[in-house]
Design a protein around this nucleic acid. Structure first.
Lengths: 226, 226
DNA sequence: ATAACTATGTTGCGTATGCAACACATGTGG
DNA sequence: CCACATGTGTTGCATACGCAACATAGTTAT
């Protein structure tokens, strides 16, 4: 068992209230798999038609919606303690068009989805904890989607940028943040275009609202007005 | 017990795989409350600091996010079989700023949130079904938020309108749909402004893409191009 | 060193759309 | 009947921003 995996068992919210020993039992009981992906590689959401929940134990996964014409919308990305694929559990949901992509070298632990919800026959003691944890994580995803909507709903680009950066700053607990997105990715996320984003960032720096260098931003004013 | 409530027990996905008798037991076991609201009334998400999950048994609820400056974003609205408040279950989530509003005269059944997840001591047989159903419904909310993002991420207003109407048409299973939103609400939902929406709808009618009268729309072309 | 590639910033142009102001229809209450 | 409110459509104006084209710097391979 890799160090990464042990670390994930100890810290990842999916394994809250489950001892390391139980985590190891669980690995076997549920038939989990650990797998690594290179940057930009697509991560399949199911294997042999079995739905999987992916636990991101290192790296970052972008969650993308593709419409029937092949155009992609960058929905959201996993945080440090992320999971993905959990939306696809519901039976009558069209999973079509959701794509998971490794945004950087990424390692994932897969858990077969149906085994989390249906209690196993030996009714392992950790099973209830696992489904509660999944619940919490799904709620987080929900919150992440809500934030994304709130950001992209702002009417001006400047407000979108501020909304995004102040949320990131809030999560980091600091006015200085290093974001996990490149400029083009950030533009996609904010539903704008790269050059417009560049332009507006320049303007905001000129206006003394923020300072930045590449992926590191510092908010200089609490955006109280507006 | 009202007819509405009985109908909800028989048809609402929250009560899938639970018999009517068990639903009635459940009402008492969980301490549910039925409550009605007038149009535009705010629906409190918790009562005496107990989080509640709201089951919409008639009417429609708008889910709105308010930022710290009081500006509102129209996140999404409940479908026929809707619930709301389910995001707030996760313990470490800031529930701040989520507002539920009755968009029309609406009746709601409240279930205390913690009693759904924690199995009760008499371990009622329906308890597992209830939490599975909640799972499905949360996944639906997730899908609804994803759709909303997909719609508002479109770059032109025309594409937003098409994305919205074709999703509605898909759900209705018909090219003719009556949407549950007024023009201003629709504009809010699409993150645009009412007059721009009006103008673009006129243009689209002129271009033969759709026809409409008030809240009823008919898609005339499969939007294949673009 | 050169070439090729990627990430970012810059700039000019055209237009979609936000905004405000107005018009019109319908409903409601006095 | 009038007064008022609400929901919708229309139009002119100004501008934020999408887009394309180019510039610059850093990185890697040959």
């Amino acid at each position: 068992m890799s160090d990464l995996l042990i670390h994930a068992f100890q810290t990842h919210p999916m394994f809250n209230d489950i001892s390391l020993t139980n985590c190891q039992t669980l690995m076997n009981c549920l038939g989990c798999r650990e797998k690594s992906y290179k940057k930009d590689q697509i991560i399949p959401a199911s294997e042999n038609s079995d739905r999987q929940i992916g636990i991101v134990i290192s790296g970052c996964v972008h969650i993308i919606k593709e419409d029937i014409w092949g155009r992609c919308t960058f929905l959201t990305y996993t945080e440090d303690d992320g999971i993905f694929g959990e939306v696809l559990i519901g039976e009558n949901l069209s999973e079509r068009g959701i794509i998971f992509k490794a945004a950087e070298p990424t390692t994932v632990l897969f858990i077969p989805a149906d085994r989390i919800l249906h209690p196993c026959r030996n009714s392992c003691p950790f099973h209830h904890a696992l489904s509660r944890n999944l619940f919490d994580l799904i709620s987080r995803r929900n919150v992440a989607l809500t934030e994304k909507i709130e950001i992209t709903s702002k009417s001006s680009l400047r407000e979108k940028i501020l909304a995004y950066l102040s949320l990131e700053a809030q999560k980091a607990g600091s006015m200085k943040v290093t974001i996990p997105l490149s400029r083009s990715e950030m533009a996609d996320y904010l539903c704008t275009n790269r050059s417009a984003l560049s332009r507006e960032l320049t303007n905001m720096k000129k206006d003394g609202i923020l300072d930045y260098d590449l992926r590191t931003f510092r908010l200089l004013q609490v955006p109280d007005s507006k």
